[in-house]
Amino acid sequence: MLIDINANVGHWPFQQTNCNTCKELLERMDSYKVDFSCVSNMNGIFYKNTQSSNEELYNEIMSDSRFRKRMIPFAIINPIYAGWKNDLDVCASRMGMKGIRLYPLYHDYELTDPSCIELVKSARDRGLIVAFTIRMVDSRPRAWMDLSKEWSLKDVIPIIKEVPDAKYMILNISSGVYLGEEDTKLITGSNVLFDTSGKNLYDLDGLMTKYGKEMFAFGSHSPILDYVTGMLRIESLRDNEADSATRELLRSGNAKKFLGM
């Protein structure tokens, strides 16, 4: 079994992307035998009212039983915009969202903003996963309307310190995966799952030794990044680096456990 913990649908406004709909994502999943995908709607990064994107995603998933069976929806919530508490409640209790994705750089707030901390605590109390994407795109070839700043892994440390008992997915780690001793201890002592889409994961074997094999899971960051690279980081591991049981953890076991499946 294979679970992609980092997929997106929706429009990326600065560049044409393919596979932007649940239908196209499902076709791609089928071609690579991906069983489930955690998916959110990128439109929510750009809408002022992110709830509109969550409604779009929900409606699209509900439109086809195949989507309902294979897509695991994550809401996008902006804690500095009016009505987020109600949005979170609707997403969790009525739309069946399994987690939330936050985009503090795009929505322009600090992770230690009281509203953000309150949102993460609320997500924790509902059993929702909180996902952070270290970067959506490489900032170097960015469009002129896009952000020039990128995070590194250490930038999410403040919220983990604030709410250490929440469940975190940290996606597309492009830099800073090798944390110092204190931050490593915090991460390994928390409930964190990294995906394999980020460019900084060139040594998954070494990272599993550092953080633990239970902390990694397949992620594609589709449709921004290619669908195969995150897979190669797992499948090219040698037998002495990952036995069959470890491979299954990376393909689906860790994700299943994290998602409560």
Binding site: S31, K33, F36, M62, M71, I72, K98, V228, L232, E235
Partner: peptide, 24 residues
């Protein structure tokens, strides 16, 4: 109505040769 996020894994664990396992 149930979403994937709310259900037990229903797909069969056993598959024949799959795309990801044959990617190498």
């Amino acid at each position: 109505i149930m979403l994937a996020s709310q259900m037990k894994v229903l797909l069969p664990e056993e598959k024949t040769k799959t795309a990801y396992s044959s990617i190498m």
